[in-house]
Amino acid sequence: MAERICGMSQQSSPAPEEKKKNSSGREKALQKNPEYQKVLAEKEYLKGFDAACETPEAVAQKIGVNPESGLTENQAKENVEKFGANKLLEGKKETVLHMFLSEFKDPLVLILLVAALIDAVFAIINTVGGKADAEDWAEMAVILAIVFLDAIIGTIQEAKASKALDALKKMSSPNCTVRREGKLRTIKAEEVALGDIVILEEGTIAPADIRLTRSFNLKSDEASLTGESVPAEKSVEAVLKPGHALGDEVNIVHSSCPISYGRGEGIVIGTGMNTQIGKIAGMLSEEDEQTPLQKKLASLGKILGIICCAIVAAMFVVGILWL
């Protein structure tokens, strides 16, 4: 699963037009969830702000938190109400039956079904007329077997993909330690708010994306994001340039990444769907997204369908004129 998630995070950036389409697809997939509007509010609040390119002081000023004392309980509550809980959202889950039936929407599959139907009609006619031929039924059976086998394989692959989001949720930590009003307290990861000061220690898992303010030999296992088998060393002093790669963010500890060595603390700069893991979850929740090959095959299917209909119509007209 880590390799698969890593592959998604390292895909090349799509063209602006395609990226815009993909973004709208994710919004359509999740917009029915009432919490999604809060996700958009946090995204808009942080728009154009890259914490990896800022000093800890600048990040604290932007979010409005004192790293020494942390948020107050009221501030944390307000941020959760405004930006949503720190959890991954998902659209409505499809049933296995719906996945199976959706495999028959492809134009090429529909053409094969029509061909099987025509074979069945001719086989019935020949059977009634006493000219039954096993080949007529065999052709129909072969076509239907191919179609249903393809649908079953597609359904299995779709079902496996739908489980990927559940795998991401299992990677997150159930609890974490934060500093609020100058005191340390343990809370559920879902209760972490934007601006919380999170305490990181060896063996813990980052509950959100965090800009480090303190670090003591801190190393984080980011294999699920970057594919690196060696834990990444973290540094508070690093200030990156715009346009940096995800693997270069040495001053950020990403959500769901375990702390393998050292200790530290930092400011939460992204929760839920606005973390790097959340962005991957958003891609997994996309609906009706097709690969370029699927789009070309769908276009080819439509063209073949039109050609077949034209040939049938032409043969029908010729048959009438011939008679």
Rank of each mutant, 00 (worst) to 15 (best):
A2H: 11
C6N: 09
C6I: 02
M8W: 01
S9V: 13
Q11W: 06
Q11L: 09
Q11M: 09
S12D: 13
A15E: 11
P16L: 01
E17S: 05
E18S: 05
S23I: 11
L30T: 05
Q31L: 04
P34R: 00
P34K: 00
E35I: 01
Q37A: 11
V39T: 14
V39K: 01
A41V: 12
E42F: 00
K43I: 02
K43D: 14
E44Y: 00
L46C: 13
F49V: 15
F49H: 10
A51F: 07
A51T: 07
A52P: 13
C53V: 11
P56D: 04
A58I: 07
A60G: 12
V65L: 08
V65P: 14
P67N: 03
E68L: 10
E73A: 14
N74K: 14
K77E: 12
N79P: 10
V80S: 12
V80Y: 00
G84W: 02
A85K: 12
A85W: 06
K87C: 14
L89T: 06
K92P: 12
E94N: 12
T95G: 03
L97E: 12
F100Y: 12
L101P: 08
S102L: 06
P107S: 04
P107I: 06
L108S: 03
L110R: 15
I111T: 06
L113S: 07
A115C: 14
A116D: 09
L117Q: 03
V121T: 08
A132P: 08
W137G: 07
A141T: 15
V142I: 15
I143F: 08
A145T: 13
L149R: 00
A151K: 02
G154R: 00
G154W: 05
E158K: 04
S162H: 09
K163D: 15
L165R: 04
D166L: 09
K170H: 11
S173A: 15
P174E: 06
N175H: 09
K183G: 09
T186L: 01
A189H: 01
V192M: 03
V198M: 07
L200N: 07
G203Q: 05
T204D: 11
T204S: 15
A208H: 06
R211T: 13
R214S: 15
L218E: 11
S220A: 15
S220W: 02
E222C: 08
S224K: 01
L225S: 02
L225N: 02
T226R: 03
G227E: 05
E228N: 11
P231N: 05
P231R: 01
K234W: 07
V239G: 10
L240F: 09
G243Y: 03
A245R: 10
L246G: 09
G247L: 01
G247F: 00
G247K: 06
V250A: 14
N251Q: 10
H254K: 12
I259W: 03
S260R: 04
G264W: 01
E265R: 05
V268I: 10
Q276L: 06
I277D: 06
I277P: 03
L284D: 08
E286R: 01
P292K: 01
L293V: 15
L297M: 10
L297N: 06
A298I: 06
A298K: 13
S299F: 13
G301Y: 02
I303T: 05
C308D: 04
A310F: 09
V312S: 07
V312W: 00
V312F: 08
F316E: 09
G319R: 08
W322R: 14
L323F: 10
